[in-house]
Design a protein around this nucleic acid. Structure first.
Lengths: 211, 211
DNA sequence: ATCGTTGGATAGCGATAATATCCAGCCCGA
DNA sequence: TCGGGCTGGATATTATCGCTATCCAACGAT
């Protein structure tokens, strides 16, 4: 398969594919001559994954590089791959240890996770994301209360359990790995989209004009 | 309040505040002389909101401008404000009407919403977000099935209902409006963070090494 | 009077993600 | 076999975003 065919089938321009090759996002094809290289279905699949991560999840190139590098590492297990994907998703907020509000929020988060008995590494970026959000909510005069968090916690738990079930059902290693990425990154978008739609529905019922 | 005090209390540099003033994100203070202007608590509150939207939700300046403009419009109602916020959240994906896959996915989305009986405008960007995700999932060999969507739909519905309940409890208009933004934008981050944490827990239990 | 601060304007920067251009080398059809 | 168009590879350029930096004249507190 030539690069132009790769371009046609992936929907990306030749220039962009060359750029991804340069960045190490896409492995090189096998050179057959000085100005000729051959690509295969694996390259096409990889491009489709890259495109989904860029356009749907809006991940930066560097984050995608991290993910595909992990995917290509045949020593990595499912759980570690999840960590890689979540780290790539960010946020890349360095914890502001000097800020008292921030430290307090972070402790709230840690306490919550401990209370729930969730097994989460202390390094998980989602801890910081949650802490940062708590700080912002409090600053804006909408402090979080644990009971108000309940529905979110339950929803998150139910969905994650479902997702993990889906993953174990699959068998072949390569597909399981891809499935992990897809579940983590793309189904998060599904959840967000459905949440927004449900929100609009709920709002329309309560506040909307009749129509 | 001088600009330097605004800077100290908001945690943003004077330069950044000037930049926000230029961009129309923050209303000007009242000029007291050629090189003097006075700011008040409202400016500070506005800056905190801007900061939360930038740093927690990672919204672009233009989107924040749209939100604060709507907030300042005293003719706008809660439901319309939700629309503004959701539009600001993106995605800013123009529907590719020429792409057959895309059209099919979009129809699936529309059919799903209709079947659920959700009241959502046909223009809602979340429809496109969901359609785009469906396309990507199918291209990657993970086609969506309606039954697999159930947990997400239920979670989204439960959370949205809860959020809408919270909003009606509040009374004063200005706070209700702020509450709508906070609910829509920041609690989405809470949901995302909790989902990731729950996912790690579920994964640790099923795939993780003992520890 | 002086010295730091302010508002206001303009210019510059660093990161990101492409695009564009150029250049031989090569393949394929006429 | 020859020539136009594609190719890989390298280098240069662009566009957008979100700030930063610099300058300047006008203040105002000491």
């Amino acid at each position: 398969m030539k690069i132009s065919e790769l371009s046609d089938r992936s929907g990306l321009t030749v220039q962009t594919i060359k750029f991804y090759l340069r960045e190490g996002l896409l492995p090189k094809g096998t050179s057959t001559a000085a100005t000729r290289a051959e690509y295969d279905e694996r390259h096409l699949k990889r491009l489709r994954l890259i495109r989904a991560l860029r356009e749907v999840a809006d991940l930066p190139i560097a984050a995608i590089t991290g993910i595909v590098t992990a995917l290509d590492d045949d020593k990595i297990g499912l759980h570690d791959l999840l960590g890689t994907a979540q780290y790539a998703l960010g946020p890349h907020v360095e914890p502001r240890a000097d800020d008292a509000d921030w430290r307090a929020a972070r402790q709230d988060v840690d306490a919550l996770i401990a209370e729930l008995g969730w097994r989460v590494t202390p390094l998980a970026p989602a801890r910081d994301l949650l802490a940062q959000t708590f700080v912002a909510l409090r600053q804006l005069g909408f402090p979080i209360v644990l009971t108000g968090l309940r529905p979110y916690i339950e929803a998150a738990g139910a969905i994650s359990a479902h997702e993990t079930d889906q993953l174990t059902a699959d068998a072949p290693r390569e597909r399981a790995l891809q499935g992990m990425i897809v579940t983590t990154v793309l189904y998060e978008q599904v959840l967000i989209a459905l949440h927004r739609l449900a929100q609009e529905d709920a709002s329309a019922r309560r506040f909307g004009d009749e129509s």
